[in-house]
């Protein structure tokens, strides 16, 4: 559906996007991750035809955006970074404007506008000037604008930036709801979001793609993947700890609290191994006063940091 090849953009001496290539198919929600200034937004601006690349091509449904900009743009919905809107308009007139520019048939226009208004819940502020709206409402108006024409491809630049937790949840549900029939590319630096909505994650750093996999695979690279945290209401002896460390699937043991009546520790698993059974058996065997035990799926932020600071891959 969306094929990006060798995309490159330079601003004076700085290469903001450097030979980025990937393809996204319908049904995929691609998370575009990277530190600030990694080239996420610039890439999205090129995919949506706002900026012309210095090299490379963007093809959507087989059509090159450089060759048929208007046709390609009509199949894209785009939420630019910061959700810019015409502040002197109301959400109602703004959506009507977008519908008209996008050439929605007048008969369909009103029904479709009402649909998206319901979808993002902006019915209550429809006739208020956009400049008076809260950040959450503005973001939702921006989303409404992006999905108004029911595009095949949805490009969202930080769709949940600045929203409160409830609003974030809502926006993510919205994205998940549309995911199966569209190509969705969203940029974010909120890693939990990647876990929550993305089926695939591309990490960019200094303009280059440094990782392209699933959120699950990324988490498996984390040291914390399958790690177990234990709280024991007694002091564990050095022998106990050595026994833990000696378990075949254990990679390391880290003790964070150790007092007469309480020990808190974390056991890291070797790649591809699960600790639960063997640790549980050991605890039973030794009669530990185990009060808490929970497993971790892995920490994306850790992997993210490692990848983008160049320690991994």
């Amino acid at each position: 559906m969306v094929e990006i090849e060798g995309l490159t953009k330079r601003f004076r001496a700085v290469t903001a996007v450097d030979d980025v290539s990937f393809a996204v198919e319908r049904g995929e929600v691609l998370g575009f991750l990277g530190p600030n200034g990694a080239g996420k937004s610039t890439t999205m601006k090129m995919i949506t035809g706002f900026l012309a690349p210095d090299a490379g091509t963007v093809r959507i449904a087989g059509r090159d955006i450089g060759e048929e900009p208007v046709a390609v743009k009509s199949g894209i919905g785009y939420l630019p970074e910061g959700a810019p809107l015409y502040s002197d308009m109301t959400p109602g007139t703004f959506l009507a404007f977008v519908a008209e520019v996008r050439g929605l048939a007048p008969a369909r226009r009103r029904a479709r506008i009402e649909e998206v208004i319901d979808m993002v819940h902006i019915g209550s502020v429809l006739n208020q000037p956009i400049e008076t709206l809260s950040k959450g409402f503005k973001r939702r108006v921006g989303l409404a604008q992006a999905v108004l024409h029911d595009p095949q491809v949805l490009i969202l630049d930080e769709p949940t930036d600045g929203l409160d937790p409830n609003q974030k949840h809502e926006v993510r549900n919205l994205i998940r709801g549309m995911a199966s029939e569209k190509v969705i590319v969203l940029s974010t630096h909120i890693l939990e979001e990647v876990e929550a909505v993305c089926t695939r994650a591309i990490i960019v750093s200094r303009g280059r793609v440094v990782s392209d996999s699933t959120p699950q695979a990324l988490m498996e690279r984390s040291r914390h993947h399958n790690a177990l945290s234990l709280v024991v209401d007694q002091a564990l002896s050095a022998v106990d700890l050595e026994a833990l460390e000696a378990l075949p699937p254990a990679a390391a043991v880290e003790v964070s609290v150790r007092s007469e009546s309480r020990t808190e520790l974390r056991i890291f698993a070797k790649a591809g191994c699960s600790l639960v059974e063997e640790v549980g058996a050991l605890a039973r065997e030794r009669g530990w006063l185990l009060t808490e035990m929970h497993g971790e799926r892995g920490r994306l932020d850790e992997v993210f940091r490692e990848i983008t600071s160049g320690q991994l891959s």
Partner: peptide
């Protein structure tokens, strides 16, 4: 200034 230029020029207009 408002960034709406990005909105406008990514609509299907020349």
């Amino acid at each position: 200034r408002g960034g709406t230029i990005e909105l406008l020029l990514t609509l299907p207009v020349t």
